[in-house]
Amino acid sequence: MPKLTAMMIVRNEAKRYLQRCLNSLAKYTDSIVILDDASEDNTPEICLTYRQVKLFRQKESTFLDNEAQLRHKLWHYTLNDRPEWIVAIDADEFLEEEAIKELPYLLKQKYFNAVSFRLFDCWEGEEYFRTDGLWNPWRRGFSIYMVRYLPQLSSAWPPLKFHCGRFPIAYRQLPHYESSIRIKHLGWANAVYNRAKYERALLQDPSCQYMSKEHYESILWPPEKIKLEKWVERSSI
């Protein structure tokens, strides 16, 4: 089976979903490369309890100032791990259980060098996901989360401070297999953090270049304006 390496940037994740995420990754990856962006809690200690984890630490946090540089660093640490395939996932994202059955086939197939998934944003807990506007996981399309390492491709990253993507530009242009496996995203599941996330988003993107103003505003919409659907666990045949 080709080697699958996960790569991830973390910062102050101890009280969030890190342990659950690592438990999940440990089931289907061979190696987990983590770049800790100067956490102030025991995030690094949690990471080191997993045999697959290779941890790298930043002394000072740079995620909000220069995300691209951080991503680029993580990419190089990951390449040192001699990966065959790389999955880029955040500490609050989970491939659904069905992935355990399907991933071996995706890693062994020869046609596609990249695999994409749809992301479902859970809202107010884990039982529901959001479907209005740009939150709609079907209309938003697929994003590449997994690539085969191709040494001939450039490792260049777009010179953006944020919204700079998880992979080098060349990998994002690969024809990709669109999988029906869903990614459950818990980044918005706890409303307590949403105002801070909204403020951070507008601080980073004051002229609304990356997302519309309406989309940013929709983070704080009252419940009656928000459309939710129930997350139903699925299994194949």
């Binding site: 399907e102 086939y105 995706l106 197939q109 709609n136 029906s180 659907e229 699925r234 194949s236």
Partner: peptide, 21 residues
Amino acid sequence: MLMSQWADKHERCYYYWKPFE
């Protein structure tokens, strides 16, 4: 989307697709 919504509402009906392999 419609297929997923339909399958989620019907017991023992499933919707997905799989790689050729």
